[in-house]
Simulated assay, not measured.
Amino acid sequence: MKLLLIGSASVHTFRYLAGIAPHVDEIHLVTSGELPPRYHAANLGRVLQVDFSLKALATAGKIAGLIAALQPDIVHVHQANSVAWHARRALAGRKLPWLLTCWGSDVLLLPRQNRFMKHLVAANLGAASAVTSDSLHMAAVCRELAPIARMDVLNFGMDALPPTPDIAAKPLQVLSCRLHKPLYRIDSIVRAWAEVEADVRFAGWSLTVAASGEETENLQILAATLGLGRVNFTGFVAPEVLAGLYRDARVFVSVPKSDATSISLLEAMGHGCLPLLSNLPANLEWVLDGVNGAIVEDVARLGRALKTQLLRAADDAQLAEAATLNRRLVAEKGLHQPNMARFAQIYRELV
């Protein structure tokens, strides 16, 4: 099978390419930036760099030319935003099946911006031969936006389930590793941590704030202004370093305003962290409040929720019980290679 993959220059696109490559005979890529060498597959053919912005009206013609030259069996487009708009125009009039994978903000946030964006996303969804979503909630939103020919709920998954964590060896650490953007509300986590540091019961606990972004400097200033002494900003770290941060953390905190199923949540669950999450539908598909993690109803009260979970996570028996359940959930529906095989099966059925 010959696959044409179309997606923005994101680690998610590149990671998908490397994962799906063993399941197809040839894979070709249309993207908006350089493909890092680590993601090059042995059966990778053409790589076309294009501009996916709405102003780049020539992009559809470039993609159409590549399709005509390659004659792929199937096209897989990532994100129902301008990427899919260019791909949809390039595919117009062709009897060529194409799969559209939604990532989250493209259907949960973009259609709310204005009527034009809502129409664009809806048209992309309605034109695809099939659509995939990584959560039941996002799938329902897609169906509200447009009639969907076929919908599959499937995520990219974490690379592999790590060894069973040694719960007793975990230090008293909390981990935040989402991007430093307004969407992820890292500032709320820092402010909540101030309440933790002010409570003598948690004198041995520390917070690691990994990742980076446009708000990094402001977050560091905020921590200094609050006089925090047990917060470590690591910046962006390599995957193997991040794995170590998960391994050492007892609590994982992530409170974005909007989200689908995040790989970081799956990784935290796989490494035996107790998740503390914002009250979003996709999170509720993985975590039952008070059972295998916690859901905070109001981020303004995150400090109280965080302290409650620290008390729970400090108990090795309680943390081990939650970790066992979380690892089983990830093993059943959150691993990369089994899910890549499922994507490949969708390809075969569409072809």
Rank of each mutant, 00 (worst) to 15 (best):
V75L: 13
S53Q: 11
L99I: 02
Y39Q: 10
D152L: 00
R250T: 09
Q113H: 15
R191D: 10
G61S: 15
L96H: 13
P171G: 02
R46W: 13
E240V: 00
M158W: 05
L302P: 07
N292P: 08
R201T: 05
H78D: 07
P182C: 05
F252N: 06
L4F: 14
G65P: 13
R15K: 12
E297Y: 12
A238D: 15
R247P: 06
D152V: 03
V241L: 06
L17W: 15
L120K: 06
L136I: 01
D248K: 09
L91M: 07
K62D: 15
P22V: 01
H119A: 12
S258Q: 12
H23F: 15
W98E: 01
E332A: 11
R38G: 08
I63Q: 13
T324G: 00
L3T: 05
A84D: 13
G334I: 00
A42N: 09
P22K: 08
P111D: 08
A18K: 14
L54C: 09
G270T: 01
A300C: 04
I295L: 07
K181R: 15
V253N: 02
M117C: 07
D159V: 01
N339S: 00
K2L: 04
L109A: 08
F233D: 07
V287H: 08
A9R: 08
G33V: 14
Q79M: 12
H76C: 14
L265N: 08
T324V: 05
R46E: 15
V77Y: 12
A140H: 05
K55N: 12
A268V: 03
L245R: 09
V209N: 04
F236Q: 11
M117L: 12
I186C: 11
L277E: 11
L207F: 10
S212W: 12
V296H: 10
V296E: 14
L311R: 11
M138Q: 14
W85C: 01
A123N: 15
A127H: 10
L226H: 14
Q337H: 02
V253D: 06
P182E: 13
Y16R: 04
D315C: 08
L29V: 09
I346L: 12
V131L: 13
L219T: 05
G244K: 11
N232F: 13
R201N: 08
L274C: 01
N43Q: 05
V153A: 03
A123C: 10
S32W: 14
A314Y: 10
G227E: 15
D159L: 02
R348C: 07
A260F: 05
L175H: 05
L125V: 00
G213K: 07
G272P: 07
E217F: 10
K257I: 04
G126I: 02
A92P: 00
